[in-house]
């Protein structure tokens, strides 16, 4: 028996595989750093005040911005929040409070499965649901598509957050003679609230980055628009259109718009992280 050499071999395999795993970890950094670096380096040059405030200009003309697209994104994400946040958070509270029965389990399963439905499919749904009845593309249709995308993910996130609220707090409130529903709202949900806000911010960030469901719901618009019944520009669709155009000038605009989008998404993510931290500190 050559116990020693087999042990050495096993040791080598052990170290080797650990190294491979670490290498894979490093490998994941390459695309991340590449994307971030290129968006920043290629996009920063085009950043100016007018980029945020002006309408796009035709090819060849200097200047111009994505002001209308930025506004359109804010507008549609806002609409999506109006529908999606209450429904998503509400469904999450339902899952946490009543989700242990058969109905609750099937709702949870459906939410999990729906959160994997491709966003382009949701675009078709919003098209059939809003665009066809209205007769034309609109910000409402875009908002509805984004809302449908928000609901399942937000529901599951909210459920987890409400479930980690200690049962002792609910008991303490009930023992004070507080009704169930008041206890649920003012103690349990209140305690989970900062986490829920975090989840909402992440849902907003995700919605702001969606492109596919907007292509044939909100379509696009060359001008300022605040009428929810009209086609509306969005930052993501603008990036797409600029990127697939044949003009270098527009490519540069695509990078700058991408930088703006990353800044928006990044700020929302950072805000959510800051909130998470303050919540942990408060909860001992």
């Amino acid at each position: 028996m050559n116990l020693h050499s087999s042990f050495t071999y096993r040791k080598v395999v052990d170290r080797g595989m650990a190294l491979v795993c670490a290498l894979f970890f490093a490998l994941a950094f390459i695309p991340l750093l590449s994307v971030l670096w290129l968006v920043i380096s290629k996009g920063a040059a085009g950043l100016s005040w007018s980029f945020f405030t002006q309408l796009p200009k035709p090819v060849g003309e200097v200047g111009g911005g994505v002001g209308n697209a930025l506004l359109g994104t804010l507008f549609m994400v806002g609409l999506a929040c109006l529908i999606g946040l209450p429904l998503g958070v509400g469904a999450g509270v339902f899952l946490a409070e009543k989700g242990d029965g058969t109905v609750g389990r099937s709702v949870r399963f459906m939410a999990e499965v729906l959160s994997g439905v491709p966003s382009i499919v949701v675009g078709i749904v919003a098209y059939a649901l809003v665009v066809i009845p209205m007769g034309h593309f609109s910000a409402i249709a875009g908002g509805v598509a984004l809302a449908i995308l928000m609901i399942p993910t937000l529901a599951r996130a909210t459920e987890e957050l409400v479930r980690v609220v200690p049962a002792s707090l609910r008991e303490a409130s009930l023992a004070l003679g507080v009704a169930n529903w008041r206890t649920s709202i003012r103690v349990v949900i209140r305690t989970a609230m900062s986490g829920i806000v975090t989840a909402c911010l992440l849902a907003v960030a995700r919605a702001a980055g969606e492109t596919a469901p907007l292509l044939f719901t909100a379509l696009n618009n060359q001008y300022w628009n605040t009428d929810p019944r009209q086609p509306t520009a969005s930052l993501t669709v603008a990036i797409f259109n600029y990127a697939i155009s044949p003009y270098d000038d527009w490519h540069a605009k695509a990078w700058t718009a991408a930088l703006v989008l990353l800044i928006v998404v990044g700020l929302l993510n950072i805000a959510s992280r800051v909130l998470t931290r303050s919540r942990l500190k408060g909860a001992r």
Partner: peptide, 15 residues
């Protein structure tokens, strides 16, 4: 429960 109050094993002030 307003007539019969309760104090629990672990202190549980509302955070």
């Amino acid at each position: 429960r307003r007539r019969v109050g309760m104090v629990f094993q672990r202190p549980n002030p509302f955070p």
